[in-house]
C-alpha cells in the first residue's frame, strides 16, 4: 500500500524578499527556494508510519521552480521508494493552492494511496491550505495541524492541535488527507554523499501536466508591511544596547 507525500519548494522567508516590478508576485530571480519546512515534517511522519506498516512512500511535487529534483532526490535518500515530479508551463509562476490541488489530484487518485500527507501550510498559501483543498477535490476525510498519527485497524488515528496544548483526537477512514504540523520526531538528516549516490542510482518519474484557469484570488498588489508602529531601534554596540535596555526597564519600574 502507498503513502503519498507532497513536497513543495517555497521562497526562503529568512532571506530578504523583493517584489517584482509587476507588483503581483515576488521577484522570482531574487529568491532562494527551500522545501516547505512542514513538508519535511510530512515526509518524516510518512517514513515513520511506513517503517511499521510497510507501506511504499511516494514523494510527489510540482516543479514550479525548475529546482525540485534536489528535494525529491533528498526524499528518496531519506527512504521514499518513488518520486514523481509534475512539469508544465508554470515555471517561475506563483501557483495557487487550488491550481496545485487540481494538478495533484488526478495523479494521487491514480496512485490510490491510503494516506496523503502534506505540510500544514506554506508561506505562499494566499488561497488557503493544500490539505483541505485536496481533500475536498478527492472527496476524502482530512485533518490538519496534525502532530501525531498512527495506522490502526484500517483507519488513521490523528492528534490535531488546537491551542494551549488542547488537542483533538480523530479517527479517519482511509484514504485520508493529513496536513502535518510536526512529525513525531525531528526530520531526519541525510548526508549529501547519500543524496549524490541516490542521484546516480534512482530516477525521478516525470509527468507533463497542463494548468487550466481557476478561481484563485489574484493579488492586486503585494507590498511590505507599513513602517508605522515600528520599533524604536536601539543602535550601537551590544554594551550600549544593554545600557539603554536597563535604563528603559528601570524607567518603567520593571527592574
Amino acid at each position: 500500500m502507498t503513502i503519498v507525500v507532497v513536497m513543495e519548494q517555497v521562497p526562503d522567508v529568512a532571506e530578504e524578499l523583493a517584489i517584482a516590478p509587476s507588483g503581483t508576485d515576488l521577484d522570482r530571480d531574487a529568491i532562494s527556494y527551500v522545501v516547505n519546512e512542514y513538508d519535511e515534517h510530512a515526509l518524516e511522519e510518512a517514513l515513520l508510519l511506513a517503517e511499521t506498516s510497510g507501506d511504499e512512500v511516494v514523494a510527489i511535487g510540482i516543479d514550479a521552480t525548475g529546482e525540485l529534483d534536489q528535494a525529491l532526490y533528498t526524499a528518496l535518500a531519506k527512504g521514499a521508494q518513488r518520486a514523481i515530479k509534475l512539469t508544465g508551463d508554470f515555471e517561475g509562476t506563483w501557483l495557487s493552492t487550488r491550481t496545485a490541488a487540481r494538478l495533484l489530484a488526478p495523479v494521487i487518485e491514480e496512485l490510490a494511496p491510503r494516506l496523503v500527507l502534506v505540510g500544514v501550510q506554506a508561506p505562499d498559501d494566499l488561497d488557503g491550505q493544500l490539505a483541505p483543498t485536496l481533500a475536498a477535490l478527492l472527496g476524502w476525510p482530512h485533518a490538519s495541524v496534525v502532530v501525531g498519527s498512527e495506522l490502526v485497524n484500517g483507519m488513521v488515528r490523528v492528534r490535531k492541535e488546537l491551542w494551549g496544548g488542547i488537542t483533538m483526537l480523530l479517527e479517519l477512514a482511509l484514504p485520508a488527507v493529513l496536513g502535518i504540523q510536526a512529525a513525531r520526531q525531528a526530520p531526519r538528516y541525510v548526508p549529501v554523499s547519500r543524496v549524490r549516490q541516490v542521484m546516480r542510482e534512482a530516477s525521478i518519474e516525470v509527468r507533463d501536466v497542463e494548468v487550466t484557469s481557476d478561481l484563485a484570488p489574484v493579488p492586486v498588489r503585494l507590498r511590505f508591511p507599513e513602517e508605522t508602529g515600528q520599533a524604536e531601534l536601539l543602535t550601537g554596540s551590544a554594551s550600549e544596547i544593554a545600557d539603554r535596555l536597563i535604563e528603559l526597564l528601570r524607567a518603567r519600574g520593571l527592574l
Binding site: P11, L26, P123, L126, P219, L222, R223, F224, P225
Partner: peptide, 11 residues
C-alpha cells in the same frame, strides 16, 4: 504572507 514579511491586497 511569507511569514508576515509581505502583505497581499486582494480585490
Amino acid at each position: 504572507l511569507f511569514g508576515g514579511k509581505i502583505l497581499a491586497d486582494v480585490a
